[in-house]
């Protein structure tokens, strides 16, 4: 239950982190709430860790006219405690409150969660629903990747070797925005079995329904989203078929869980 021997250094700047990351088998650690257990179990055996939790440039929070931009090392508890400006009707604050437990939220970071890309985690699904864009930074410079293209599968992202997430830009929604979020967990604070999430913004003509906690990346239900915006609760009649068509390999229990999570999330916006 003790990690292998490795070196550790906290990066004060992003450039410093990128330089350190160029070494062999060097891993990034932000809040360490997923990496910590994996280190203790020796599933991860790095030669060195670069600590990003206190890197000032990654702790920035910016409230601009069209979007809220947060640094990768902003912690879940900061969303929960209302320290991050709200881009979409309080959705992020609500979601943050349901991540693991308070003692995890005080240390775990949004960028760490995204980079880890556990399909059952909350932020990957939420930020896909909110159409967030990530700024990734590597030695060659920075590039923007939308959430829809960032997560490629379980624990797999568009991050290249030596690249880190610098910030996350979440577009601001209009006053008329509504959202729903429902996750099915066996016990409070556990990873989800299924997540249903949606953002409906008539003011921006934006509607996105997302199925999370699948075996891979969150799935944006594009056609269903269009139908839901146009037809409202009547679209729910096609939900089961949509879920089945989207997850052809899923077992019946999993299909049912995904359908129920989506239905309950949708009913938070469209009472029926």
């Amino acid at each position: 239950m003790k990690p292998v021997d490795f070196d550790y250094s906290a990066a004060e700047t992003v450039d410093e982190a990128l330089t350190q990351l160029s070494g062999a088998d060097v891993k990034v650690m932000s809040g360490g709430q997923s990496l910590g257990p994996m280190l203790n179990l020796r599933l991860v055996r790095p030669s060195a860790l670069v600590g990003l939790a206190a890197t000032a440039a990654l702790r920035r929070i910016e409230d601009a006219s069209g979007a809220v931009t947060v640094g990768a090392a902003v912690r879940h508890a900061e969303f929960e405690d209302g320290k991050v400006p709200d881009p979409a009707g309080g959705m992020m604050q609500y979601v943050a409150r349901g991540i693991a437990h308070r003692a995890v939220r005080t240390r775990g970071t949004i960028g760490g969660s995204l980079a880890h890309a556990d399909p059952a985690a909350d932020w990957v699904t939420t930020l896909t629903t909110l159409d967030a864009v990530l700024t990734l930074r590597g030695a060659a410079g920075s590039r923007d990747v939308p959430m829809t293209g960032f997560m490629q599968g379980a624990f797999t992202t568009a991050l290249r070797d030596g690249e880190i997430i610098e910030s996350i830009r979440i577009p601001k929604r209009s006053e008329s925005v509504r959202w729903g979020y429902y996750k099915i967990c066996r016990k409070v604070g556990e990873f989800a079995e299924a997540i249903g999430a949606l953002v409906v913004d008539p003011g921006q003509r934006y509607c996105r329904v997302v199925m999370g906690a699948t075996d891979g990346a969150p799935v944006v239900l594009d056609d269903f989203s269009r139908r839901l915006a146009a037809e409202g609760a009547a679209a729910l009649s096609g939900l089961a078929d949509t879920v089945r068509a989207t997850l052809p390999d899923a077992n019946p229990v999993s299909l049912r869980q995904h359908e129920v999570a989506l239905r309950r999330a949708i009913q938070q916006v469209y009472p029926s």
């Binding site: 003509r205 509607c207 915006a229 146009a230 916006v269 469209y270």
Partner: peptide, 15 residues
């Protein structure tokens, strides 16, 4: 928990 509102959003066409 999160309660449903009384009134659903108006119907619209997604941009």
């Amino acid at each position: 928990g999160r309660a449903a509102p009384d009134v659903p959003p108006p119907s619209f066409e997604v941009a």
